[in-house]
Computed example of a mutant assay.
Amino acid sequence: MICKWDSVDFECLKRSLLNVLESIDFNQKWFKIALGFVGFNPVFWNVVARLEYGTRFLTRLAGGARQGCYLLALTIFSLGVARDLCFEWSLRSQPVSAVLNQELVKNVGRVCIGVGQLLVVTSMYQLGITGTYLGDYFGILMDNIVTAFPFNVSNNPMYHGSTLSFLGYSLLQGKPAGLVITLFVHTMYSLALKFEEPFTAKIYAQRDAQRAKKD
């Protein structure tokens, strides 16, 4: 059943949403693997970064803080590529929903992908590799808080941009399974921020306190 987007029929909307959920193959192998990567990746980089902060094991292993950060960056990037590939492979075998397979939805998906990629690319440009990939846990701190775009529209443009990209691709493909994975991506990023933001604030507060003592 396809509802008209120019009018609100809540009963039709309810039936459409049920049809969307029923069309998802939750037992598909790549769907499960994609969810596994989505859940594992932020847990991995938070655990490893905390261990690095407390023990400097990556700094010693790589022969320096910057080299250690690059090693972690390469690992996180590789895990992200594996996650994205599994996400794409999962959607290939998932059914298309008639509710989502409409030009308006596809156009929304294209906009989401465009905005999402813009946030990701400009965030990395502003922060650089060490700023993007947890360099502060290695003692590589930025002199000042970045306030230029995209940080003037989002506190966490990398996470928001990534989530929008997942959402946009799912809408463009018309695959409800992608929306479920996107929701899980958003949930995991939100949980990760609850650990990352206070700890990062603590690191910079300690740096500022040490500077104040020297002055």
Rank of each mutant, 00 (worst) to 15 (best):
V43M: 09
V43R: 04
W45K: 02
N46S: 07
N46R: 06
V47G: 02
V48S: 05
V48W: 10
A49H: 00
L51P: 01
Y53T: 11
G54S: 11
T55L: 11
T55D: 00
T59N: 00
T59W: 04
R60Y: 14
L61M: 12
L61Y: 05
A62H: 07
G63L: 10
A65G: 02
A65I: 10
A65R: 06
Y70I: 15
Y70D: 13
L72S: 05
L72N: 04
L74P: 03
T75D: 03
I76W: 14
S78T: 15
S78M: 13
S78F: 15
S78P: 05
S78D: 05
L79P: 01
G80R: 04
F87M: 05
W89T: 01
S90K: 00
L91E: 02
P95N: 06
P95Y: 11
A98M: 14
L100W: 09
Q102V: 13
V105P: 01
N107C: 14
V108D: 00
V108L: 14
V108K: 04
V108Y: 13
G109W: 07
G109M: 09
G109K: 05
V111W: 12
V111E: 06
I113W: 08
G114Y: 11
V115K: 07
V115G: 04
G116T: 05
Q117N: 08
L118V: 14
T122P: 00
T122V: 11
M124A: 12
M124T: 13
Y125T: 09
G131R: 03
T132Y: 10
Y133L: 14
G135L: 10
Y137Q: 03
F138A: 01
L141V: 13
L141G: 04
L141Y: 06
D143F: 07
N144C: 14
V146H: 06
T147F: 09
A148K: 15
N152E: 11
V153N: 08
S154C: 13
S154G: 11
S154I: 14
N155S: 15
N156E: 14
H160D: 11
S162F: 11
T163M: 07
S165L: 10
F166N: 00
F166S: 02
L167R: 07
G168I: 11
L171C: 10
Q173P: 06
K175T: 08
P176H: 04
L179D: 09
V180S: 03
I181T: 03
L183N: 06
L183M: 14
